[in-house]
Design a protein around this nucleic acid. Structure first.
Length: 426
RNA sequence: GGAGGGGUGGCAGAGCGGUUGAAUGCACUGGUCUUGAAAACCAGCGUGCCCUCGCGGGUACCGUGGGUUCGAUUCCCACCCCCUCCGCCA
């Protein structure tokens, strides 16, 4: 969420930002400002009444102490009306506060000035294309056929046991998955300097709210209502919430975490060839990067974090491209976001495998993650960033397709071999 | 799951119905002293919100939410979390 006081002082910038993000209706801003006026008026009235009440109580205390019991009793008799007033005003102030908070949660983050305007995927800027798309002297197969032929993934039994989108990885398929996770984590921790985290896979409501999955996107998450918990849609949720409600020492920044987790997403919606095979699952593996940085560093960090994610694709030798997301395709909480898409040789299309975002203080304000700048009493909100490095299923798809051979086997890229324990699958 | 103990400021730790935002110690900041440093001494030192151009003032906050009371950190109820013991369990 944005800073209420800032919104109060810059309503036009907020309206402008919403328009850039393609939100026609900016009257939330007006409703918010109005609600804020109401809230402050109610609060003043309440506090004034409380001040009077405190004065009376103090007097009564003094009278009691000096033994003037009857005078005290007279004063006590006078208080009932004031008590009633306070009770009512408390109610009103609370309601006003709740209205303001609810409206504030409806206001999206402000896009950074370097973010291109646009209304959807077509307006994203392709900032660069890297690596060579392989030329095949045979017809490359899509990954679902490769995995079928080699017995890597069992989609049908996954459907039987759980449902569509919950495949079994079997034998070499399972081993490949494990190898990639280990390799990605090593890259992030040993080379990238990220501290490795194994987070819980269930989070409570406060955490889901903290990273912005609630209140709006509850359809995204699987829920365990009996215990009021949610299955994580990404490690971003537990790992960012790790520092919720904390005040960090300035010297500890930047804080860099990497985490592997299974991710659970309901993804209600489209079916068809674009979700075939590994393209879209309800449960998948991902290694996520999260950073907490000083505000002045966050845009530089966005670039280095993007480099960290790209390095994984480079190490795997997979062709990919980098997209700078436009205002309309960016999402509610982000100020700036890159996507990385890997080339799928068997499907001949780009697959999103990573998304790297700067949230500025939008998340940290909600989560109250602050730090104390050197030589300063007042705390400030840190900036948070996160990025995938990488999401596994589509990476696996591209990997199998890119490195498939005419005889049906897959020749793994050199850096992956020690993790997999062999050069070839099949 | 059962029994007991506990949750107070950055940390440690008092308070247990009245002017307590909260003793004390440590940490931190400024000053005195010193050639310099340490020690010592003096002073300051929580957060949110509201009002104010500013000085400043007000209000709320002692795990969370309710209740009793003129007044609650202090009493009552519910919930959450932590610790110890028992049970169960990978």
């Amino acid at each position: 969420m944005l800073d209420l006081q800032w919104v109060r002082e810059h309503p036009d910038q907020v309206r402008n930002a919403m328009a850039r993000k393609g939100l026609e209706n900016t009257d939330v801003v007006d409703r918010l400002l109005e609600a804020d006026r109401t809230r402050r008026a109610e609060l003043s009235e309440l506090q004034e009444a409380q001040a009077r009440s405190n004065d009376v109580s103090r007097e009564i205390g003094e009278l009691m102490k000096s033994g003037r019991k009857e005078e005290a009793n007279d004063r006590i008799a006078e208080t009932s009306l004031l008590k009633k007033e306070i009770r009512e005003r408390e109610e009103a102030a609370r309601a006003a506060e709740a209205t303001v908070n609810a409206l504030l949660l409806e206001v999206p983050n402000i896009p950074h000035e370097t973010v291109p305007d646009g209304s959807g995927a077509k307006d994203n800027e392709v900032v660069g294309e890297f690596g060579e798309r392989r030329k095949f002297d045979f017809e490359p197969l899509p990954h679902w056929e490769i995995s079928e032929n080699l017995g890597l993934i069992d989609f049908d039994r996954g459907s039987k046991v759980t449902g569509a989108g919950f495949p079994f990885f079997v034998g070499p398929g399972a081993k490949l998955e494990r190898a990639l996770i280990a390799m990605f984590l090593d890259l992030a921790s040993d080379e990238g300097g990220y501290t490795e985290i194994q987070p819980p896979l269930l989070v409570n409501e406060d955490s889901a709210r903290g990273t912005g999955q609630l209140p709006d996107k509850e359809d995204l998450m699987y829920e365990v209502p009996r215990d009021e918990l949610y299955l994580v849609p990404t490690a971003e949720v537990p790992v960012t919430n790790l520092l919720r409600d904390e005040i960090l020492e300035s010297e500890t920044l930047p804080i860099k975490y990497c985490a592997y987790s299974a991710c659970f997403r309901r993804e209600a919606g489209s079916y068809g060839k674009h979700v075939r095979g590994l393209n879209r699952l309800h449960q998948f593996d991902k290694v996520e990067l999260v950073q907490f940085v000083k505000p002045e560093d966050s845009y530089e960090t966005l670039e280095t974090m993007r480099d960290d994610a790209e390095r994984v694709l480079q190490r795997l030798g997979l062709p990919y491209r980098r997209l700078l997301m436009c205002t309309g395709d960016m999402g509610f909480s982000q100020a700036k976001k890159y996507d990385l898409e890997v080339w799928s040789a068997g499907q001949e299309r780009w697959l999103e495998v990573s998304s790297i975002s700067n949230f500025e203080a939008f998340q940290s304000r909600r989560m109250r993650i602050r730090y104390r700048p050197q030589g300063q009493q007042k705390t400030e909100f840190v900036h948070t960033l996160n990025g995938s490095a990488l999401a596994l299923p589509r990476t696996v798809a591209a990997l199998l397709e890119h490195y498939q051979q005419a005889n049906g086997t897959v020749l793994l890229p050199e850096p992956l071999r020690p993790y997999y324990g062999a050069d070839t699958i099949g």
